[in-house]
Design a protein around this nucleic acid. Structure first.
Lengths: 191, 191
DNA sequence: GGAGTTGGCTAATGATATTAGCTTTACGGC
DNA sequence: GCCGTAAAGCTAATATCATTAGCCAACTCC
């Protein structure tokens, strides 16, 4: 049997591609093995199992997303940065519907690359808030609010929770505009 | 063999309880059958299969959530209504961690009860917006924004995406306060 | 009390994931 | 070049889950 020449990286990358084609839920070791031209158990030479694959995939796609968010915000500030980052976020989810769910898995503390990717992603959002002069607890709260709004919208949209596409674009635009307003006049924390 | 006396309702209700105990992902026909004291294939006398069970479960829990949201907003207006509803929303997710994910499944158009439950849930949110005098497209956009913020926060929290619980309470409070501000000065749609 | 409906069962099939253990390829050192 | 070994592939076996088919017993209703 000629060797295919796989390694962990090629396996995880192919998993990302496959996820985009068939959906995150349908990403299965069996399908992945078939795609790579290999028998299912052979994958265990490169990943510890299905859970480990999901974790490595999460590390990969979180890093991708972090890079795109950072790039979008680079050279911009305030509302410009916010809008650019928000657009990049939703755009990533649209281009990579199967990868996107993997970005929401909490980083595995034992995988430095995963942890670093997560920090970069949150850091990109955090950086945008500097333009709104939010610091300390306020910055933490605002980061969470922004993540919630973006992730919530994107995941509801992906689930088909909204209506017509055209209208959805407008709604997202308005959501981002409303976040801009919120961040400009961030409510005082009473504790 | 003595009959257990199941019907669709008892099966779906038990599925909801089981989901809260073991998690939505771990809700399996096998586990449910075991819990009900019945062999797995017997469940097919009451539900068409795993997908149908998930759909019926969604109808049940969406109705529950809609009822709680409606009750929370009743007799209140404006910011009061918003805060009460937001608290009820997160509270439901905390009390029913296994049911909550099922609330996000898009209603099955062929199941009138499911559709009605979905409409009531969105209607509850929509009603809160009356206090902010938002109508037409603005109300649609604002409803989506509010759903996104609440669902995003709750699902990130459930996934363990945030840190210390105490801090998370504060962040949610601030998120809701910021939504109140946004809704008061909802940005003009430029189209 | 019997007929029919229905709720339970067992058995069989097919995905999927996982583990064990075998074989052969590739490659580095001599 | 040869040989030893680590690693990459394989088959086989096991377990869990979902699904379908077909059987049988228990309620129900006249």
């Amino acid at each position: 049997m000629p060797r295919v020449g796989l390694n962990q990286q090629t396996v995880v990358r192919e998993a990302a591609r496959l996820a985009d084609e068939v959906g995150y839920q349908q990403l299965t070791l069996a399908a992945l093995a078939g795609r790579l031209g290999v028998a299912l158990p052979s994958l265990y030479k490169h990943v510890r199992g299905a859970d480990a694959l999901a974790q490595k995939l999460s590390a990969l796609v979180t890093a991708e997303l972090a890079t795109e968010l950072t790039a979008a915000a680079a050279g911009r500030a305030g509302g410009d940065a916010l809008r650019a980052m928000a657009d990049a976020y939703r755009d990533y989810a649209h281009r990579h519907p199967g990868r996107y769910p993997a970005t929401q898995q909490v980083p595995d503390p034992t995988d430095p690359e995963h942890v670093e990717a997560g920090e970069r992603a949150v850091g990109a959002i955090f950086a945008v808030l500097r333009g709104y002069e939010l610091t300390g607890e306020d910055a933490v709260d605002a980061t969470r609010a922004l993540r919630s709004a973006l992730h919530g919208f994107v995941s509801l949209e992906a689930a088909g929770g909204f209506g017509l596409p055209r209208e959805v674009d407008r709604s997202y635009h308005q959501l981002v505009a409303s976040m801009d307003i919120s961040l400009r006049s961030w409510p005082a924390s009473d504790r």
